[in-house]
Design a protein around this nucleic acid. Structure first.
Length: 907
RNA sequence: GGACGAUUAGCUCAGUUGGUUAGAGCGCUACCUUGACAUGGUAGAGGUCAGAGGUUCGAAUCCUCUAUCGUCCACCA
């Protein structure tokens, strides 16, 4: 904690546990940084900035995916908050119908109870107890990430207000004719025993047997038609054999009757375009109850529908297989077919099969009565807003995926045969007539009776999720108009994984447009998918999924946040191993130590702390007479700010991390702070110049802390409180973002660049010739332009100290020949000589120079060739040509100097 | 079968509208335990930018094809 009487330094060693404990969200929350107010937006005309948190499943625990996702959201929120906007981040959790019901059922099964034993009401009570006990685990874990969402507005999709919104949405869609009930073949999960939407089915490659079966023809003894099938168990439910009408092989068979093996039923041979002539035998069995295509074919030909597989995936036939699992029945039937001589052959066959997303079992096409949403009318508008740029995707290539889905959209099966979820607001009267209303009373009123029975099913979880942008802002119905909605809708940025673009993103766009007439958000940022170092998806079963809490423990939350953002570029997957967090940890340590240095220097220069408070409070870097190094570092600092803000505008999140990292490490620490030490050593300790220099160092440090704060909230908060004494209630999160200022460029900055190069070159010469590190050597710099002499001379002390030279002389052309026994180098037209009698051998140095000359000759040749190319000179922009000419000129000069120095060496 | 993305140093990746002698981190080599920091500093080695064509005065960057990897979509049993 900052000591207000003296300038307390930071602890010697950086301890992230300590810092994180001090600035936990418990500490931040009372500071009010999470709490955005609609009144401020509406009354004061402040610009709102809203982020919608994808609600994690209540059953979930923190994964690296969450870490990336929520860190990015927090970065957007903190950045915009510090940029003066009213920043609102809306958190919540999702009831996750199937996942949660499965978890609770499993727990009950462990206690020997099934949900059916309990009944619906008692079971749901169990689920609520479970949710209240474990359901917020993920939110507690998320808090450790330091995310600054508005926890007061935390919403659960089963909360009363959200549930009212769901009922309202269902009823409105129904009355508008966009929700209907119908008998269809849907995806059925035999484990969860519920219908699934198409999106909840994962296609996986799988090896099965392609079974060729002979069907005898009833009226042509001894003749057969052979079909190929991967699902022989459904033979029992065959109602026809289909061939292509254009297939000459079967032309005479159409209209015949075939006998279904094992079942003995007579079924017609029909002709339908659906059949592919090329595949298998060109003849196809039609099983309408167990295949969506067959169902359509059967519809066209008025065929009956027979079913032999039940809800639990077991056979229901009356031919002796009843009760067997569908896969066991498959094997048995293949064996039985063979025994009866109906089996022609069996081939290995690899194909794609749909699996249930949650239960990971093969879904069963199942004919049943379900509720659907007509998607086409909704999709048209939702497609338009993305096509026209009202909603922007980052990266934009997801638009084509989105477009493709929207253009081929199919109706959404929204009923689930579960108990945990929003129960469908539909009631049936004694005659089976359906009444849809927001309440039982209303339904009774409509039906004119109070003898109604509610639909047993609940809605797909995503039916509440697609209302999330509305419900999080308190929307419960169409006419509702509250301040939050007026102030914060549409929201600004949605950060989400690309795998839920259809489940969620697309549907939220539809719902926003439909229920409120406006898009739900402006920008969608699709995060990277995190994989392990071998490129595999993270999964619990592979055991390759590091526990983020452990990573935070060992490396620090800031380190994890910084690292994961740094390695997650827009639109690319990232390979993550927790060792990578060393990068962020090392950076955090570096920041800490650099701050310690600057604070130490401050104490040296300001013996009386109040002097510093007074001076720093009104410090203006533009008003100071700047040294070369100061002008240079300010120029670099503002260039960094420029790139930083631009990266935000372009959603290039890894650039944000990179740009600050590079400035801070290379420019600020390695060059500026090192130079500052030297500069201070020659300035009077309490003098004005020294004080200004320290204030400038702190000014830039503070700026870096601010731009880093969205990425590394803990450490920046801690150090910021030490820059100047701050009130306990102050937070860097409420400070304002530094803005770029283009004034800090020009001569001094360029000169310091040359100084840096001279220093590097001199160090390089020392290393090459093995000058002992503690042996000072003289250094001579020959400049061709005498006016430069005093300018370099003004940096003499810096150069001497930083290269451990005994002396640094700046000479003009009057230095006719280089000092004897010198190593030499040419940098930016300056010739550098390092007299090294005894250490330097003629052979070694001439070989080195020759190599250098060779490289320079190649370079000069290349430039000459380029510039003698008429096409280049005529076509390239003048600026580019001029630049190349300048380069050539400089290279030729340098080359000449190198050659001359080699000659001198030889004499 | 369609669509999209990737391929740059040993490893992981930057390289924004075509114009720098192609960069960083990790790893590696040498030197440095100097009062911010060895979770560090200084200096260095290491790349014909997947391959082949093309457009252009000029290509890692744009186009075409090929190869390899990955993702999403799709009702051929």
């Amino acid at each position: 904690m900052s000591d207000r009487s003296v300038h307390a330094n930071l602890e010697k060693t950086y301890d992230h546990h300590d810092v994180e404990r001090r600035w936990s969200s418990a500490r931040w929350e009372p500071l009010g940084i999470h709490e955005a107010e609609s009144s401020r937006v509406l009354d004061e005309g402040r610009e709102p900035y809203t982020v919608l948190m994808p609600p994690p499943n209540v059953t979930g625990s923190l994964t690296l995916g969450h870490v990336l996702n929520h860190t990015l959201q927090d970065i957007f929120i903190r950045y915009n908050r510090m940029s003066g906007r009213e920043a609102l981040w809306l958190p919540g959790t999702d009831h996750a119908g199937i996942a949660t019901q499965t978890v609770v059922e499993k727990k009950l099964r462990g206690e020997g109870v099934s949900r059916h034993d309990l009944g619906r009401k008692a079971f749901l009570e169990h689920v609520w107890v479970w949710r209240n006990e474990y359901g917020d685990l993920i939110l507690r874990q998320l808090r450790r990430l330091g995310i600054s969402c508005d926890w007061r507005r935390n919403l659960f999709t089963m909360d009363e207000s959200a549930s009212r919104a769901v009922l309202h949405a269902f009823v409105k869609l129904y009355r508008d004719g966009l929700i209907y009930r119908g008998k269809r073949i849907i995806n059925w999960c035999p484990v969860s025993q519920t219908a699934l939407s198409d999106e909840e089915v994962i296609m996986k490659s799988r090896k099965d047997k392609l079974v060729y079966v002979r069907y005898p023809l009833a009226k042509r003894p001894g003749e057969f038609v052979t079909i190929a099938t991967v699902r022989p168990e459904t033979i029992l439910a065959d109602v026809a054999i289909a061939v292509n009408p254009k297939d000459p092989r079967y032309a005479d068979l159409v209209g015949e009757l075939a006998i279904v093996p094992l079942a003995g039923r007579h079924v017609p041979v029909i002709a339908d375009d659906y059949v592919d002539i090329e595949f298998g035998t060109g003849a196809l069995k039609i099983t309408p109850a167990h295949d969506p295509n067959d169902y359509e074919v059967a519809g066209r030909h008025n065929l009956p529908v027979l079913s032999v597989i039940g809800k639990d995936g077991r056979m229901t036939d009356d031919l002796g297989y009843a009760g067997m699992d569908r896969f066991d029945a498959r094997e048995k039937i293949i064996a039985d077919l063979e025994e009866r001589g109906a089996l022609v052959k069996v081939e290995e066959y690899e194909h794609k099969v749909g699996y249930s997303e949650r239960a990971d079992v093969v879904v069963e096409p199942y004919l049943s009565e379900q509720w659907f949403v007509s998607m086409k009318p909704l999709a048209e508008k939702a497609l338009r807003v993305v096509n026209e740029g009202d909603i922007r995707f980052h990266p934009s290539h997801w638009i084509s995926t989105y477009r493709h889905w929207m253009e081929n959209i199919r109706d959404w099966c929204i009923s689930r045969q579960l108990w945990w979820g929003h129960r469908i607001p539909a009631w049936y009267d004694g005659e089976g007539k359906v009444w849809v209303a927001e309440s039982y009373e209303e339904a009774c009123h409509l039906a004119g009776t109070d003898k109604l029975v509610q639909d047993e099913d609940v809605l797909d979880t995503w039916f509440s999720s697609w209302l999330w942008p509305l419900t999080t802002l308190g929307w419960t119905g169409e006419r509702e108009q509250n301040d939050d909605l007026r102030a914060f809708y549409p929201t600004n940025t949605l950060v989400t994984a690309p795998d839920i673009i259809f489940f969620w993103v697309a549907r939220m766009i539809m719902a926003g447009l439909y229920f409120r007439g406006d898009v739900p958000f402006r920008d969608v940022y699709f995060t990277s998918i995190i994989r392990d170092m071998k490129g595999r998806k993270l999964s619990k079963s592979l055991g390759n999924s590091p526990d983020p809490l452990k990573v935070m423990d060992s490396y620090g939350t800031d380190a994890l946040r910084f690292t994961i953002v740094h390695i997650a570029p827009l639109g690319q997957d990232v390979l993550f191993g927790e060792e990578k967090c060393e990068f962020g940890r090392n950076f955090a340590t570096k920041i800490w130590n650099a701050a310690r240095l600057v604070f130490m220097l401050r104490r040296k220069v300001f013996a009386v702390p109040q002097d510093f408070d007074g001076m720093y409070g009104g410090f203006d870097s533009a008003a100071v007479d700047l040294s070369d190094s100061q002008r240079w570092v300010l120029g670099r600092y503002h260039a960094m700010l420029q790139a930083y803000h631009q990266a935000f505008a372009q959603f290039r999140m890894n650039d944000i991390a990179r740009v600050v990292y590079e400035f801070f490490r290379s420019d600020y620490c390695d060059w500026y702070l090192e130079t500052l030490k030297v500069e201070l050593s020659v300035l009077e300790a309490n003098g004005e110049k020294a004080r200004e220099a320290v204030c400038l160092a702190l000014h830039i440090l503070e700026g870096v802390l601010k731009v880093l704060h969205p990425l590394m909230p803990f450490i920046t908060e801690e150090i910021w409180h030490h820059v100047v004494p701050r009130d306990e209630e102050a937070s860097i999160a409420r400070s304002s973002m530094p803005q770029p200022d283009g004034r800090f460029t020009g001569e001094g900055a360029e000169r310091f660049d040359s100084v840096r190069k001279i220093i590097s070159e001199a160090r390089s010469l020392r290393a090459v010739f093995g000058v002992p590190h503690d042996m000072p050597a003289p250094l001579v710099n020959r400049v061709s332009d005498d006016t430069l002499k005093p300018l370099f001379a003004s940096n003499t002390h810096i150069i001497v100290t930083m290269t451990n030279s005994s002396d640094f002389k700046v000479a003009g052309e009057e230095l006719l020949s280089p000092p004897p026994h010198s190593a030499s180098s040419v940098v930016d037209g300056n010739e550098l000589f390092m007299p090294l009698e005894g250490l330097i051998s003629f052979d070694k140095e001439s070989a080195r120079l020759e190599k250098e000359i060779g490289a320079m000759e190649t370079y000069v040749n290349r430039l000459e060739k380029k510039l003698s190319n008429k096409g280049f000179v005529d076509n390239a922009p003048g600026e580019v040509v001029r630049k190349e000419r300048r380069k050539l000129e400089e290279a030729r000069t340098d080359l000449a100097k190198l050659r001359a120095n080699l000659d001198v060496l030889a004499t």
